[in-house]
């Protein structure tokens, strides 16, 4: 009965093909809005930024093609290297410290602790504030003559540092305010990760005689790998692109000591009373993008735990 069997089996592939087309249309329908939004608001601006970085362009136009001259000028500009260094210092200080403190707090709040919901909310609240508000708040708190921090230190008999006129202390104050705002995110992501750790595994290790530190080092921390990977990428990007907190708090001063790459790009391209060189600012933006891409790609290659848990 091969012919009859063939007749009976014939509709099945057609149904599969129809279902397959239907699935593709459904998937396309779901994907389209995201693709359109990503294309319009991410890919297109990115391409335009790269194009503008090869032009001489101010806010009134028209554009003039420069080739790579903006990049040549940038690599000869000593202020660019100073701002790049400031950005690296800011990133190196905020990312590991913020994640370590966030992890510590998450471990604390993951235990049976009185009022832990309240503490969780208190630590998380700064994250929902706008970064400009945090910067303004920081400017008031670290005002070296009338600010809360130095007044408080004076009560303790300590002569407070020059938070605003000394470059190093100004950077410290910006880092502290950033940490205050960002630790909430680190804490909440780690807390979610900790709640995914199987208590049975920890109990088994305890029965085997593993100390608390050993349990954390050999079981908990490795299982938090996906959380660490996510936070590392996000924090690196946040830190490398910091602008609003710094600009509202120190305006990049004193001198250029807190001027980060994005603040420098803003001053060169977008400040109403600046030189308005959008092409040069775009070149700085391309450098920021390239560095961010390299950092992310490097971390992606080095991380062995990124895919284990979503």
């Amino acid at each position: 009965m091969p012919a009859a069997a063939g007749l009976a089996a014939a509709p099945a592939p057609r149904r599969r093909a129809r279902r397959s087309i239907g699935d593709a249309l459904t998937a396309g329908g779901f994907l389209l809005p995201n693709l359109v939004l990503s294309g319009v608001f991410l890919v297109l601006p990115l391409i335009l930024t790269v194009v503008i970085s090869f032009q001489k362009l101010d806010s009134l136009g028209p554009a003039q093609w420069l080739g790579v001259n903006n990049f040549l000028d940038l690599f000869r500009d000593p202020t660019f290297y100073e701002t790049l260094w400031n950005t690296v210092v800011f990133t190196v200080c905020t990312v590991p410290l913020g994640m370590a403190v966030g992890l510590g707090i998450a471990l604390l709040l993951n235990t049976v602790m009185p009022l832990r919901t309240l503490w969780r909310a208190v630590i998380f609240v700064p994250l929902v504030l706008s970064s400009v508000s945090v910067g303004l708040l920081g400017a008031w708190m670290f005002d070296q003559y009338n600010g809360f921090v130095n007044k408080f230190l004076a009560v303790l008999g300590i002569d407070g540092p020059d938070w605003q006129s000394n470059g190093t202390w100004a950077m410290v104050s910006v880092i502290l305010m950033t940490l205050w705002q960002r630790i909430g995110l680190d804490m909440i992501i780690y807390l979610a990760g900790l709640q995914g750790v199987d208590p049975a595994v920890l109990e088994a290790a305890e029965v085997d005689g593993a100390s608390s530190w050993r349990r954390f080092r050999s079981i908990v921390f490795p299982l938090l790998g996906p959380s660490t990977f996510f936070l590392l990428i996000m924090n690196l990007l946040f830190s490398f692109q910091v602008f609003d907190t710094v600009y509202a708090m120190t305006a990049g001063g004193p001198n250029f000591s807190t001027t980060t790459l994005v603040v420098y790009a803003y001053q060169q391209g977008f400040s109403d009373h600046g030189p308005g060189q959008l092409g040069y600012a775009a070149a700085i933006g391309v450098v920021i993008f390239a560095v961010s891409l390299l950092l992310t790609a490097g971390q992606w290659r080095l991380s062995t735990t990124r895919d284990e848990v979503g």
Binding site: Q64, W65, D73, D77, T79, G269, P275, A283
Partner: peptide, 15 residues
């Protein structure tokens, strides 16, 4: 090709 396109500069930064 890019460098041959122009000897004009934006005038930004310190260069």
């Amino acid at each position: 090709g890019l460098s041959a396109c122009s000897d004009v500069h934006s005038g930004g930064g310190g260069a």
